[in-house]
Computed example of a mutant assay.
Amino acid sequence: MSAPVKRSPKAAQTIEGGRFMVVGGASLVGSATCEELLAKGAAEVRLFDNFSFGSGEAIAHLKDDKRVTVVQGDILKLHQLLAATEGLDGLVHLAAFMTLSMDRDPWAGIDVNMRGVQNVLEACRANKVAKVVFASSNAVYGYGPGVKGDLVEETPFHSVGAPPAAILYGASKIVGEQLCRDAHRRHGQDYVILRYSTVYGERQHYRAANALYIVETHDAVKRGERPVVIGDGSETKHFVYVGDLARANRMALESDATDVAINTSGPEPVTTLELVTMVAEISGRPDLTAEKREPDPTKVRLTSGGAFRIDHAAAKDAIGWQPEVGMREGLARLLAWRDRAAG
């Protein structure tokens, strides 16, 4: 049984009239989080990004809102963070290398995912930012056959049989979480850790290993080609809609919960075969059945598959959150957005 959630009145931040920053703001989750905070009446939202992974297109729809400030900066440069975090009430830290980018450049990924987090926390300490929300991942439970059953917040890390990049990513998120706990212990920094499942939604990119199944399947179907499934299609995927995560970020800031890590997963898991079948059906081509292929050992894919379920009951207890958008509805929204963007 989980320990009672720690509560502190000073941890709760009022969004209306508040000033917040989203680190990694020019991203899928960053842009949605900015929209969520603005919709709830934030006086200012700063989007801090070095644009190595984020893009101007992801936040183009926000540029005319005078409450939005775009700060181009690098989390590895503490002086830039110190300047950018002045006068804030809260901060959402999203910037990170994911598994595919970690596979291409592990040294840079370790730097960003560990030293970058420490820099963000130090800037928040120096400028007395009251609340930090840290985007972690269900990768903290590891990968491979040892990961099974219900994954709850106390589930240990497993690494046997998993690709090195996936383990490096998961381990880096564990370190990031521990840095948050250390900042709370040393300096009283209030924080909430959200362990994201694979995120998907409008303004989807091509960088997330499992979300690639969605966008690559949609691309194939639009070309009239059969979608590809790696393996037999029975691998389970764990997705969460971007709007649900933006809501979780906002609710974590508002909550009086502190010094806690919670899962933020979708309503239900989905197999790879179910996923590509839904994409084909929503795209109007149910006749394009999946083609099954053997895994390519040189590619990092299927990183969150497994015989497990990511339990999100603790999130409701801690911050009042639960997912609202099911997979078919979320896919319909994403594919409609992609079709509109394609003209």
Rank of each mutant, 00 (worst) to 15 (best):
A139W: 15
C124T: 04
K128D: 13
A318W: 05
F97D: 07
G73I: 00
V279H: 03
S2Y: 14
S136R: 07
K40P: 07
E177L: 03
G320H: 10
M327I: 15
E291P: 11
P145D: 14
R328C: 01
A280C: 00
D232T: 01
V5F: 12
A261I: 03
L82V: 08
C124L: 10
K292F: 15
G161P: 05
R181A: 09
G17V: 08
L334D: 07
A290Y: 02
T33S: 08
P227A: 01
I319G: 01
Q189H: 11
V175M: 13
E235S: 09
I230A: 00
A248K: 02
A60F: 10
T69L: 12
T155V: 04
A332Y: 02
D244R: 02
G231V: 00
Q204H: 12
P295T: 03
V68F: 03
A307G: 14
R185I: 02
R285T: 04
K173Y: 08
V132Q: 04
Y206C: 00
G161Q: 06
L331Y: 04
E216Q: 15
H187I: 06
P145F: 07
A26N: 03
S31T: 14
A162W: 12
F308C: 04
R181G: 12
A252N: 10
P9R: 05
L253W: 03
A257N: 10
V68L: 09
C180Y: 13
D219E: 07
A84Q: 11
S304M: 12
T33M: 05
R7C: 02
V325S: 00
G56M: 13
G188L: 07
E274V: 04
S31D: 10
H238V: 02
A315F: 14
T99D: 04
H184Y: 15
A166M: 09
G116A: 09
N119H: 14
D150F: 07
K77I: 12
Q204G: 05
A39M: 09
A171S: 13
I75S: 07
E274L: 01
N127S: 01
G144H: 01
G24W: 05
G142S: 00
T258H: 10
E274G: 08
I319M: 11
S2W: 14
D287K: 06
G142I: 06
K292Y: 15
L194M: 10
K6R: 15
A11S: 05
